[in-house]
Design a binder for these strands. Structure first.
Lengths: 320, 320
DNA sequence: TTCCGTTCTGCACGTTTGTGCAAATTGCTT
DNA sequence: AAGCAATTTGCACAAACGTGCAGAACGGAA
């Protein structure tokens, strides 16, 4: 972090990536050891000084991407992963690639809405740093539940985003679901809450996963003590297939008349669709139902998902 | 270039650069050998699929860059090079970095004006591929001289630019200087020439070096049989310090009354200054006089130069 | 100044990556 | 179908790279 180290890292990065010198040659010019140069380059990469991106010309994008793109109208990034890998490993790789894909989209003065959940948590752990000015990270939905405040879990995610982009972090200190819709109405008039809602209304980027009701690997929302027995029955009887930021929808993307949403703290689908860039990260084919619903609802503009799930999506999609 | 190889390269690049797998792991997933993966990655880099760039946040840009930027109002990229290296090696490194710096600036449908000379020739040899559509490379000034047509030399440069960006190439088949201004006037009315002039008028990017009269290592223009004895005397008596694309200027940037310019085929300074992005590449401190003149004339918006020359520029600049 | 905790450095080693070469494959021609 | 030239592959080796560790350098606090 000291100034001269930073500028040495810049020099080293220029020589390595722009002039194709070996670390050895750079070490000699910088009068230091090769291992130091290796470390300088690591830090240049980590601090976002070196940006590596992959631009796949649309016309050479694989079949899979083209089909999903044309069917759902989203910008799609399929993460190549062997179908045989376990869920945890797949998640890790999707998250790594998602973090790197998001990086270039973040700009100065952006307001970035971030949901919480296993997927986004994994993404937050792989973010690479990029210096921006005046950016804000805003939490999309409350995280408290009946047993715990859930605050640390969600706030760790938020904090990691904040650090990566040098952004201010705005938490949303409310439960995930209110017990009574009237409490929500009351809270929504509180000025502290309104500040957060106002930021959400001005988001330029939203980042979220999806929850799926019939997932082998149930989302936090369905398993973590956020909903009680009667709530779960309610979901079943409303034909809910999944959620985005704790707001539920059916297979056709509709969400009207799902009473639980009146007690949820996430942004309504209508509001979410106002956001210019809405990035959905999905790992694991068991989320396919939730994912399809979210896409039908038009919640995402960008979709990052593993190859196996992408294949599922296409095989369903071709016979609607 | 075959389709499947291209998409294998894309997969490999995603796994390597976006998921941090080793080549070994990628080889296993792709059911091929590690060396093939190594080659796939090379081709992904060469074909411009992988873009590596270095974004130096302005506030941490080294002293040197800030001073030049504020003094001359150009966007400057100082290439770190030991002051002790010989000219040829310095040129090679400046050219490599220049080529990589130019890459990201080239877009589809761009019209790119390219001058010729030792510096730009070196740059052309280091270009990395980037696929664009509908771009055009247009030669800025004629290359013929009294002994040879100069065509192959200049056209090699042009061709390399064309290949790198998948662009159409428009040569400018005229001598560097006419013997008589009247011939130029006549030629300028030819439709074949007008097509080129029209393209030049619509350039979005211009790329050029500078010639310097008092360079140890004189430019092609001053040594290559383009000018005769009396021309050189003419330059001396007009206090010319250098040229850009065979159009001459004095130390203060002025070029009025330099009669040789009336016979030159390069774009007038006035015309050049219309171009949105004007990239000047300079290697070697002996070009300092020409460079200062070019900057005074406001010919460049972007300057790429080696560190030693940058230091010279600053030390002059601070005592104008 | 001396002490101690922290950060940085270079070494040595193991890992990862690039590349010349011969064999295998591909694509085209006859 | 067979032949041939051009390309691609895997091997084996050499070059380049990352990192744990011990010692050096640094930066306060006493």
């Amino acid at each position: 972090m000291p100034r001269s180290r930073h500028s040495e890292a810049l020099r080293a990065a220029q020589m390595y990536y722009l002039q194709d010198l070996t670390m050895d040659a750079i070490a000699r010019e910088l009068r230091t050891s090769r291992s130091t140069v290796s470390r300088l380059l690591s830090s240049a990469r980590e601090s976002g000084l070196v940006q590596i991106q992959i631009r796949s010309p649309l016309d050479s994008a694989p079949e899979l991407e083209r089909m999903i793109r044309s069917h759902y109208g989203v910008d799609v990034h399929v993460v190549p992963v062997l179908d045989t890998l376990n869920e945890a490993e797949t998640l890790d790789r999707v998250a790594t690639q998602a973090a790197r894909t998001i990086g270039p989209l973040v700009d100065s003065n952006a307001i970035i809405g971030v949901a919480w959940g296993a997927t986004i948590s994994a993404v937050s752990r792989h973010l690479t740093r990029k210096i921006t000015h005046g950016s804000t990270i805003v939490q999309l939905n409350g995280a408290g539940n009946m047993q715990t405040t859930g605050i640390t879990y969600a706030s760790d995610i938020m904090r990691r985003f904040g650090i990566a982009y040098g952004a201010r972090v705005e938490q949303f200190p409310v439960p995930a679901f209110f017990d009574h819709a009237s409490t929500k109405t009351a809270m929504w008039n509180e000025r502290s809450v309104q500040r957060v809602l106002d930021l959400q209304a001005r988001m330029s980027i939203a980042i979220f996963g999806v929850g799926s009701v019939h997932s082998d690997y149930p989302s936090h929302v369905y398993a973590g003590g956020y909903l009680d027995e009667s709530d779960l029955n309610l979901l079943a009887s409303s034909e809910v297939v999944g959620d985005v930021a704790t707001v539920f929808f059916r297979a056709d993307g509709s969400s009207d008349g799902i009473t639980l949403n009146e007690r949820s703290t996430g942004p309504s689908h209508e509001q979410l669709r106002q956001v210019r860039r809405r990035i959905c990260v999905v790992s694991g084919a068991s989320k396919i139902n939730g994912l399809r619903g979210a896409l039908e609802a038009g919640l995402a503009t960008d979709l990052i998902l593993d190859e196996a799930t992408a294949k599922q999506l296409v095989s369903f999609g071709s016979a609607p």
